[in-house]
Design a protein around this nucleic acid. Structure first.
Lengths: 348, 348
DNA sequence: CTGTTAGCGCTTTCAT
DNA sequence: ATGAAAGCGCTAACAG
């Protein structure tokens, strides 16, 4: 009867049974060079028979200070992030790289009150987007661990970004060439509101951490360049990239006394929501209104009319972030983007 | 200068500095009832000033045997699973529940060679779909941890399933009512092949663990019921739920001497891929060929013609799985499904 | 209510 | 090449 699990199997107990010291068993598993090939085989075989699968990883990690787990800090709740196609692609990139490194991923909500509950379990963090709870940024900044940020920066840490200002400038340039055009900007979390609203003269939030403001800068640069004008009345702040919130903004814009003829949208989700509103009102895209998005999600290609956008190769960003995680010294990486001109902005 | 981090901050060192025993510091953080309110406040305040954020969680977990982390074992690589809309919804459900419980999720690939590297870090496992590496099933079965399986079963463990046989029977019943109909079944991993191929007379795999075989049973029950016939020549095995593999099967089926007029598909992804092939060949759905899927993904609603399918409420399954994880005794849960009749099967 | 102490299971010098 | 022993940082039982 091999079902004789009286004593708990630990390195020590196993060593006792085999009549060797625990260091020897440990070495058999971790440092083949420290003992004879023969003895090692013997021990490993005996362990297998006993049903001892190897050193307890939690204890080992306590001792060595490394766990083989990396924490992925999300900008928001995992539920929300997973449902977002762009974030999803990013995650795919990260996991692809990590799986190949045999490293596991611990998901961490950006709403979590603190990283304390997880920090001791992980070898470091990859952080996708500035976490909603900004206290986490402090913790990340102070932590004595490896950190890679994506779509925002922390001084002295590795980061992965696209050039948001330049991308926004270029996509805006593809639809704006005339001071007389009326532009509406459907922005993402430009001000600290839980609801969709116009920016007016309100204070912009988190300017230092925010890709949204870099994109806004790019849009405005183009508008200024052609001698156009835009005020806070034509800039909306949408609290999250969702159809629901976006359509409110689009509707407000479309019902303005001076109807916009260009929509610059800070995500494809927003752009598609806006497009639906426009079409539903019986207006034509791009003849009446030109619409451009940001991100490059698949749905934008399939939609009719297809969506002009900034393709930002999210899964590449994920790959890169994971790669930087294993780099020895901090490095700021700028990943490429590509302007995709499609039907929503181009009159045939 | 508060930047005097000479000594490493641990429970012990902090206790030393504060001139109390380490048990007292530990109690201040973990068991408020064990010391006076006043002393507790004092200690907590002093810790904050010192920059000691609280007990090391890794050490604590080693000692207590609980970490506040649950492992999510995926059926396949995280990359693949994330890209699947059904799995994605499931993950959303799981994470929603866990976040509210302040528990973190560790992602574990179903291709991983063993759970050994993670088992000591987690309080247990939720397992979504039979992992591709079947050795993991053994480990899950033997592990001295809480386990919840989804879409498959392990004896003595909690599980969440829909009634696949019944769902398949019902959806088949909605399109099959005549012995003369020619049915093609586009199945998911029915045999152990890396490529799309007909089942012929080959041995079916993993019958005991597989939802695919339960669905097949349901389809066949209906076909028999109306006096119809089907052989392995009209049953395909597709290695994963992807457009790429699915279209091969659809094409083979459509080019058969006797062209099917019903496609029973084991996922919506497969069904949509098949539908595209059918339409591309100039055939009409549902007039020439009726197509039904399985899962209930959003794309199926938006597609034209919209897809008849089994809605299986994936995110509810995720919620339920997470809920069962915290239950004291094992429980087999059968979650509801709903047959959604849409355009792809119904002649107006 | 507070302090002492023995581990949780392991790795790693340092001797032998 | 192998063994003894000191801790990684913490918690819980026990004694005071």
């Amino acid at each position: 009867m091999p079902k004789e699990k009286k004593v708990k199997l630990t390195l020590k107990s196993v060593a006792g049974i085999l009549n060797v010291s625990n260091a020897t068993v440990s070495n058999a598993f971790n440092r083949p060079d420290q003992l004879s090939e023969k003895k090692r085989e013997e021990i490993l075989k005996a362990c297998k028979e006993l049903g001892y699968a190897g050193p307890n990883q939690a204890a080992r990690s306590l001792r060595k200070g490394r766990s083989g787990i990396v924490g992925l800090v999300l900008s928001d709740s995992p539920k929300y992030v997973m449902s977002d196609p762009v974030a999803n692609l990013f995650l795919q990139g990260v996991t692809e790289f990590l799986e190949q490194k045999s490293v596991n991923l611990l998901l961490i909500s950006g709403n979590q009150p603190s990283l304390k509950s997880v920090v001791d379990f992980v070898d470091g963090f990859i952080c996708y987007g500035a976490p909603r709870n900004t206290q986490l940024i402090e913790e990340l900044s102070d932590a004595d661990k490896r950190v890679v940020t994506v779509d925002f920066n922390i001084e002295g840490r590795s980061s992965v970004n696209i050039d948001n200002e330049q991308a926004a400038y270029q996509i805006a340039s593809s639809v704006i060439d005339d001071a007389e055009q009326t532009t509406a900007i459907l922005g993402l979390r430009l001000i600290d509101s839980k609801y969709t609203c116009r920016v007016h003269d309100n204070e912009l939030i988190g300017v230092q951490h925010s890709i949204a403001h870099r994109r806004l800068d790019g849009y405005l640069r183009r508008i200024n360049e052609v001698g156009g004008e835009i005020t806070g009345e034509h800039i909306w702040s949408i609290p999250e990239s969702s159809h629901l919130f976006a359509k409110d903004a689009a509707r407000e814009a479309l019902n303005s006394k001076i109807r916009p003829d260009v929509f610059l949208c800070m995500s494809d989700i927003i752009a598609l929501a806006a497009m639906k509103e426009v079409l539903q009102m019986g207006l034509r895209v791009p003849e009446d209104i030109k619409i451009v998005g940001f991100d490059g999600i698949n749905e934008g290609v399939r939609f009719h009319p297809s969506l002009t956008t900034v393709e930002q190769f999210s899964s590449q960003k994920g790959l890169k972030a994971a790669e930087l995680f294993f780099e020895d010294s901090p490095e700021s990486n700028i990943t490429p983007f590509k302007i995709e001109i499609r039907e929503s902005s181009q009159i045939q």
